[in-house]
Amino acid sequence: MTTVGLLYPGHSAEGDYPRIEALLTGVNVPIVHTDIGEDAHRVDALLEMGAPARLAAGTEELRLSGAESVVWACTSGSFVHGWEGAHEQIRGLAVTAGLPASSTSFAFVHAVREVGARRVAVAATYPEDVTELFVRFLEAAGIEVVAARAGGVVTAAEVATWGPERVLELVRAADRPGAEAVLVPDTALHTVGCLPELEAAVGKPVLTANQVTVWEGLRLAERRGAWSTELGALFARKERDGEVGERAGE
């Protein structure tokens, strides 16, 4: 059994994680909910959401769960700090938890590389300014963003009400012929139940926040052999012979 510990902000789409557990063999994903403060996709609120004290509060519970890695299961509460600030955030988390650590933002970077994409489209629920910060984060990682669609949603609570049809609409609207993958960066959005439909609609890998978060935790725990045909191209790929996963934040 491989145990990936998650620090998840508030309560929105955490139901995606038991679904992932059910589709993977020998994977346990305990969740500790962090205090989000104000529920707002606004830069000042997002900076506070990912503050060190908020993340540190849940690390002891994750250690007691037997976690082998820990992931800050939040995209906007990571990339809003910028490339260097996001690295500092997970370095602090790793020290506090005493475990390999990462965040959903870095999970996207590593997942894009895993599926062999260089150019991507971004299908974000966020307002324009927050979406632009995610684009800059990806570009700092050497990923070309050919298009970005901002949904303009201000709160995670509203995002959590979206059904598969709205998710599909957003992904289709963001996709461009030059994109080799479509990224959906919000852990408040339910996506795990419709990954095959999303990929079929655009004919390319679709990487979503809750999906890449678990994959990143497994990568850190050096458990890269967990596969499912229901979790998109990211989990359907075969491990390349001799490949050794890098650590987030390096």
Rank of each mutant, 00 (worst) to 15 (best):
L64M: 10
T213R: 02
G98D: 07
A67W: 01
L62K: 02
L189N: 02
D35C: 10
T3G: 07
E21W: 09
V130C: 03
S228H: 08
A101N: 09
L231S: 03
T34I: 14
A53P: 03
S69G: 11
E68D: 09
A86K: 00
A107Q: 11
P205Y: 09
G66P: 11
E158G: 01
F137V: 04
G163K: 14
T104K: 01
E21C: 14
P100S: 10
V167Q: 09
P196I: 00
E114G: 02
V109I: 12
D16W: 11
D175C: 09
F79T: 05
Y126H: 10
T213E: 05
G178S: 14
M49P: 02
S12K: 13
P127K: 11
T187N: 14
G245N: 09
W227K: 12
V120P: 01
A148D: 11
A13R: 14
A22V: 10
V192S: 05
E14Y: 12
L231M: 06
I90E: 14
W83E: 00
A53S: 14
S102L: 03
A22R: 12
E84K: 10
G10K: 04
A94P: 05
E68W: 06
V43Y: 11
V43F: 13
L138A: 04
V29T: 11
R219W: 01
S228E: 00
V212Q: 05
N28K: 15
A174M: 03
S103G: 08
A236I: 05
E239H: 09
I36K: 06
A181I: 04
A123S: 09
D129Q: 12
A179W: 00
V145M: 06
P52M: 00
A22I: 10
A111N: 07
E250C: 06
N210R: 11
A174W: 01
T59N: 08
A117D: 02
E38P: 11
E48F: 02
D44W: 07
A67C: 10
A56F: 08
T3L: 09
I20D: 04
T229G: 06
H190D: 13
T191V: 07
V4Y: 02
K238M: 12
V184L: 13
T131S: 15
V182P: 00
F79H: 13
R113N: 08
T25D: 14
A67K: 00
G92Q: 04
E132Y: 08
A200M: 11
C74D: 03
A148G: 09
D241I: 07
A111V: 13
R247T: 15
G85R: 03
G82C: 06
V206E: 01
L64G: 08
T229L: 08
S105F: 02
V112M: 02
A45G: 05
T2A: 15
T96E: 15
G98I: 12
F235Y: 15
W215M: 06
R91I: 04
A107G: 15
A40V: 02
L23F: 05
R166L: 13
E222V: 00
G152T: 08
F137P: 00
R118D: 13
E144F: 08
A123M: 06
V80N: 01
V27P: 01
V212P: 03
S105R: 04
C194M: 13
A200N: 14
L6R: 02
P196F: 00
A45T: 04
T96Y: 03
W227N: 10
H110W: 13
N28L: 10
A209K: 00
V70G: 01
L55M: 15
V70S: 01
R113L: 10
L183V: 12
